[in-house]
Design a protein around this nucleic acid. Structure first.
Lengths: 234, 234
DNA sequence: CGCCGCTTTGAGTCCATTCAATTCCGGTGG
DNA sequence: CCACCGGAATTGAATGGACTCAAAGCGGCG
């Protein structure tokens, strides 16, 4: 494991205040591993054995049920995932797979729980992390129940767009069908939603979206600080 | 505050391992208050100032946005709520109101954070509580995205029914429109869904639901241990 | 007994999905 | 360099589910 990787991990809020010895204990127990794209890292229903951290690449969180699959979020470096399952020593509720070749740091669940019990600063950071994740999912649930499909798309564009001279530009880092699944619609509906947004100055070319009139989009999305702030997930 | 109330609160997993002095500190700072029905306790968007605990009565968690409202869960004694907002010192993402006359224990956010920092056992319990709540919301999101309206209703009935000689019996403790909102449908659709469940041996009389053939219902709900286990919310 | 709120039922509309077919795009091999 | 291939994305048509609007039951409470 490279020193620079350790540095980036150490810089995570989760490990910010943790003692040297405890951090070293975590890193000693941890594995750093490379995965190609499209590898399923976590199968929902299995025992949580590792706390995962995306160091490089992109990971999709999803859930499946009777043949269907729905995307719950996308993770870019550097973020942790499935912290909750590790802490309560229960099975994963979500699955995860790499979307691109990735490097993951995996810390054994037991080590996490041990350090948690012995390091107050780490315990505090874990709680903050967990609480923020909780709030992220609450936002997602609210968005799912209270906004229409087009509004969810508009909000996602606004949240992920980059301001440039000629308007908002969004680059989708994965297949559109994943975005559709995350937004809770089919790929066809997403396509039609993009078409409908043309009236609002949105043009699509491949995975790059340009929004000439960001304000119109924002108005459509009915942005809610309670829904859109932060925006850790996806 | 009555001694028996303190006992029930103390018996909560959240306070199980906490030291006497720390628990006393929390209780000293806490307020026990009665509220009539239909009182809004928490307004989303405001600063989190108290950790709330339902000691008696029933509380609805909900969220609103441009005139609409959606129910996120129902709380019966004894449960805590809005722990996450208290811990991260941010605004509430959900609102809460009493559905029936209730008694609430309210612990100032500062006291919670203080004891959290000083009592390892409490810190551990907070994390477990938080993690379980997180998992509850993940289940709710999955249910919302992966099951149809009727399936959500069937699953809710199965999860909340009581086994009796003549099948599953569910007593809805609040207005049906609240249940509809929780399940993510309109009251009309809920009514029609109940009608559709007649084919599965479900009969409705007022707020009491009887399910002659629980198995049929279970099959319809496509029960998923990952979705239905636990079932803290609602 | 009659009012009022909740619930149910009915009819019509809209939106999202499904199924099917076509187009677009990136990568490969000739 | 270009033609071809295959997966992804779009488009079209038809179906279906959920919603809105409207009106009629039902029940509780004064």
């Amino acid at each position: 494991m490279r020193a620079t990787d350790i540095q980036t991990v150490r810089a995570l809020p989760l490990f910010a205040g943790i003692g040297e010895a405890q951090f070293a204990a975590l890193m000693d127990a941890a594995l750093l591993q490379r995965f190609p794209a499209q590898v399923q890292l976590i199968h929902e229903g299995e025992e949580a054995d590792f706390l995962h951290i995306v160091v490089e690449g992109m990971v999709e969180m999803f859930a499946s049920g009777n043949g269907e699959e729905t995307t719950i979020g996308f993770l870019a470096p550097v973020s942790t995932f499935i912290l909750a399952a590790v802490l309560v020593e229960k099975v994963y509720l979500q699955s995860a797979r790499t979307l691109t070749p990735s490097r993951l740091l995996m810390i054994p669940a037991g080590a996490v729980r041990k350090v948690f019990a012995g390091d107050t600063a780490f315990a505090g950071a874990v709680v903050i992390e967990l609480a923020e994740r909780y709030r992220d999912i609450v936002r997602q649930l609210k968005t799912q129940k209270m906004r229409t499909g087009i509004e969810r798309l508009a909000a996602w564009l606004v949240a992920h767009g980059e301001a440039t001279p000629d308007g908002l530009v969004v680059r989708i880092a994965f297949e559109k069908v994943k975005l559709a699944s995350f937004l809770g619609m089919t790929r066809e509906t997403l396509s039609r939603s993009f078409a409908a947004l043309a009236d609002y100055g949105v043009s699509v070319s491949g995975r790059t979206i340009r929004c000439a009139d960001a304000d119109a989009l924002i108005r459509l999305a009915r942005p809610d600080p309670l829904l859109d702030e932060h925006g850790q997930p996806a």
